[in-house]
């Protein structure tokens, strides 16, 4: 093993790490904004209201992220209308295509988490809210959503880690993220072990960081569930 190559190329890896973090954070934020209304609608009792959100969730959860990314990045250029529209300025860039694909994908997974958690809200809590005369929207805002966000925290932590791992796909479509950096180093010096193990090490560190952050968040938001300290 020769890690001198890696040390010389450390700036490339750090730039890649920065791009990876950007992709993950931006798509998680965008995804969450899409997922909250989507999750609420798909948990609705009315069949017609939940139909479209559930179709979206089903399609994005049932197909690989790679195919979704290719559909947007390689696929959309097939249509002349897209190529001539203003959106093409964004859609011809690999970076934005990856971001759009990741956002939609994590939105679907997060919406499903929210849907499941809303459905598991104890019926008693909602009955009490109703008997207090709260309107349906007030019930959602004051009772259902706060408790949903708390209870969805562990599952969302897993989703964040999946998004981090999924973001490596960006390296396939010419983006120099962590994986892209490893690919460049490997193809320049032919050091497959060193280059990919270094990338793996960085990913491992970020994963541990995410796990730690979620543990802190759970300590804070699940404090009422912990056994009482004597």
């Amino acid at each position: 093993m020769d890690f001198e190559v890696i040390i010389n190329n450390l700036p490339l890896y750090l730039e890649g790490l920065w791009i990876t973090l950007q992709l993950v954070v931006v798509s998680l934020v965008c995804g969450l904004f899409i997922a909250i209304p989507l999750g609420m609608l798909s948990a609705h009792r009315n069949y017609w209201i939940q139909f479209l959100p559930r179709l979206f969730i089903y399609c994005f959860r049932g197909t690989p992220l790679l195919v979704q990314m290719f559909l947007i990045y390689h696929g959309l250029g097939q249509f002349e209308a897209v190529r001539e529209s203003l959106a093409w300025i964004i859609l011809k860039e690999a970076y934005w295509c990856a971001l759009i694909a990741f956002s939609l994908n994590t939105a679907a997974y997060t919406a499903e988490i929210i849907r499941g958690t809303i459905r598991q809200t104890p019926a008693g809590e909602i009955e009490v809210a109703r008997s207090m005369g709260m309107s349906p929207l007030t019930q959602q805002r004051r009772i259902v959503l706060p408790s949903t966000f708390r209870r969805a925290l562990p599952a969302y932590g897993n989703e964040v880690i999946f998004m981090l791992h999924g973001s490596a796909l960006a390296g396939i479509i010419t983006i120099v993220d962590l994986f892209g950096a490893a690919k460049i180093v490997n193809s320049r010096y032919f050091v497959p072990f060193e280059s990919f193990i270094t990338a793996g090490f960085f990913y491992l560190c970020v994963t541990f960081l995410i796990v730690g952050l979620f543990r802190l968040a759970e300590n804070r938001w699940h404090a009422h569930l912990r056994p009482r300290q004597s």
Binding site: I161, L164, H165, G166, S167, A168, L169, G171, I172, F179, A182, K183, N186, P192, F193, F196, I197, A199, G200, Y203, L204, T207, F208
Partner: peptide, 15 residues
């Protein structure tokens, strides 16, 4: 669980 599948796959394929 800490390393992306894509990184592992390329590592095993090339390495």
């Amino acid at each position: 669980r800490g390393i992306p599948d894509l990184v592992l796959m390329t590592l095993i394929f090339f390495g």
